[in-house]
């Protein structure tokens, strides 16, 4: 494998890791606050549709992004009402949200655009264009570092840079602010937080809300940056890979970055079987490669390689002492 191929491969790794990273951080906020969320997939899908739809209608990708975040927040609110207010089963609520998004997006797409459950292709200002970082063109001819900067680091959409910036930001919020401390506490021991006079319900809704915003970004990225428009079921299990990455990352922001980059690399390799064959000399079925994130997560979960311990109060509705 030559250097150019490697750069190409890493470049598509970054592209494919971005939605995973955003969704993974979304899940991180929610689960750290004790709310399991297997509805990441559905929220991404809803956001992907509404951002593409609004972008197609208004021609503005930013309005699209807002609509996507809005749609994701509506589903987050539903999850919050079901699992926090009515103390319902968080897993079942997540399953319902996934189906709701899968069905509604196609229904509305068909009603609005009549193109068999897709949006029109997005062009120009209706899409997030690649951002050329300063000096990328000047650097391009420098050996080794030039291509890394011009091809790999520069030339992504703004959402990619936002996703990568969200990692230190998440770390700072969770581990360096009072809000973060309380958010983590409410996922470990909500009774203690309640005793301290802080609202468990409020904190959990805040976490679920942040999760909605991040899923919205992830979904918008899928339909307006990675691809040019919405197609049915376009999230394609990414919400579940993000969930797997979250476990892989042991619910930590920096680990989440590495886990999603790793899973992004698998995704990139899946489209380049020739590269794998050249490197390891065996032909690998791309289907099996696609299953690798799931297999690795099961192994991690089983505790054969390190131990992934979820937040202690995860999945438990909080019932105030009477």
């Amino acid at each position: 494998m030559d250097f150019d191929t490697l750069i190409q491969l890493l470049d598509s790794t970054v592209r494919l890791a971005t939605p995973l990273l955003l969704a993974c951080l979304a899940g991180l906020f929610s689960e750290r606050a004790g709310i399991f969320d297997i509805g990441l997939e559905g929220k991404m899908l809803a956001a992907a549709f509404f951002s593409a739809a609004l972008a197609a209608m208004t021609g503005s990708v930013w309005l699209g992004l807002l609509a996507g975040i809005g749609a994701s927040l509506v589903l987050s609110a539903l999850h919050g009402v079901a699992s926090i207010t009515f103390r319902g089963n968080q897993l079942i609520s997540g399953v319902a949200i996934n189906f709701l998004a899968a069905g509604m997006t196609v229904l509305i797409a068909q009603d609005w655009f009549r193109q068999g459950g897709r949006t029109p292709s997005l062009m120009g200002g209706a899409r997030f264009e690649p951002v050329t970082l300063p000096g990328a063109e000047a650097m391009a001819d420098v050996p080794f570092l030039g291509p890394i900067y011009a091809e790999l680091i520069s030339g992504h959409s703004i959402l990619v840079y936002m996703a990568f910036a969200a990692v230190p930001l998440t770390w700072w919020i969770l581990f360096r602010t009072r809000f973060g401390l309380r958010l983590r506490a409410v996922g470990e021991n909500p009774a203690a937080v309640d005793t301290a006079g802080v609202s468990v319900v409020g904190l959990r809704f805040a976490a679920v809300g942040i999760c909605g915003v991040l899923c919205g970004l992830a979904g918008a990225y899928l339909s307006t940056a990675l691809q040019a428009g919405f197609v049915k079921d376009m999230s394609a299990g990414r919400g579940f890979i993000a969930l797997a990455a979250l476990i892989f990352a042991k619910w930590r922001p920096w680990y989440a970055l590495w886990a999603t980059l790793l899973f992004g690399l698998f995704g990139a390799l899946e489209t380049r079987p020739d590269v794998i064959e050249a490197v390891i000399g065996i032909k690998v079925q791309s289907a099996l490669l696609g299953a690798l994130p799931y297999v690795m997560t099961v192994i991690i979960l089983a505790g054969f390689v390190g131990k992934a311990i979820p937040p202690r109060a995860g999945g438990e509705p909080y019932v105030k002492e009477r």
């Binding site: 539903l78 009515f86 319902g88 609520s93 399953v95 709701l100 509604m104 009549r114």
Partner: peptide, 28 residues
């Protein structure tokens, strides 16, 4: 009709939502 098949997925989601996750909303 022009109603897509996905309508069933929506109905299914609503059934799961109301009988599963929002059970307490009906019960209380």
């Amino acid at each position: 009709t022009s109603i897509p098949r996905e309508l069933i997925v929506v109905i299914q989601a609503l059934v799961i939502l109301f009988t599963g996750a929002l059970d307490n909303m009906v019960r209380m």
